[in-house]
Amino acid sequence: MKHLTDADRHLLADRLQAMKRSAVDEIRGTSSDVEATLQPQDHEVQNHADEAEAERLGDVRFAEIEIDRARLLDIEQAEQRMAAGRYGVCMDCGDPIPRERLLAQPIAVRCAACQTAAENKLRP
């Protein structure tokens, strides 16, 4: 974190807070949509296609919630690294993550080179 100025750290902390608020709002909004989707509509005629579509939409919304929860966890972990003084250090090589990368991706845990290597390992 030594490569970041106090102003950088405050800016990044503010960005993480904004990302956190956005993720929480997304989770709340999607949760409300799921509840509305699951409520029976007594006034509408239902057929199997309608039921299948409602189930598909519910599945998509649950997947969206899981993505938002994972993003929220990443944000909280970034905040913890910041509080512990480990923010902005690559978890693989230990080098500082460039300021520009952190500004673009405040939850980054790897420098660009290590992130590329990690992604390449996942490819078949």
Rank of each mutant, 00 (worst) to 15 (best):
M1V: 10
M1W: 04
K2H: 15
L4F: 01
L4Y: 09
D6T: 14
D6S: 08
A7V: 04
A7K: 14
A7W: 15
D8A: 01
D8R: 09
R9Y: 14
L12T: 00
L12V: 07
A13K: 15
R15G: 07
A18K: 11
A18T: 11
M19Y: 11
R21N: 07
R21E: 03
S22H: 09
S22D: 13
V24M: 12
D25I: 03
E26S: 10
E26K: 08
I27N: 06
I27P: 00
R28C: 07
R28W: 04
R28T: 03
T30I: 14
T30H: 00
S31D: 09
A36N: 00
T37F: 08
T37M: 05
L38G: 07
H43Y: 11
H43E: 13
E44P: 06
Q46I: 06
A49F: 11
E51W: 10
E51H: 04
A54G: 05
L57R: 10
L57T: 15
G58C: 03
V60P: 03
E64W: 01
I65V: 05
I65L: 00
E66L: 02
I67H: 15
R69F: 05
R69M: 06
A70Q: 13
R71C: 07
D74C: 08
I75D: 14
E76V: 12
E76N: 15
A78H: 05
A78R: 12
Q80Y: 01
R81Y: 01
M82F: 09
A83T: 00
A83F: 12
G85I: 04
G85W: 14
Y87K: 02
C93N: 05
I97P: 02
I97R: 08
P98Y: 06
L102E: 13
L102C: 08
A104V: 07
A108M: 00
R110F: 07
Q115I: 13
A117N: 03
A117E: 08
A118T: 01
E119N: 00
K121T: 13
R123I: 10
R123N: 03
P124K: 11
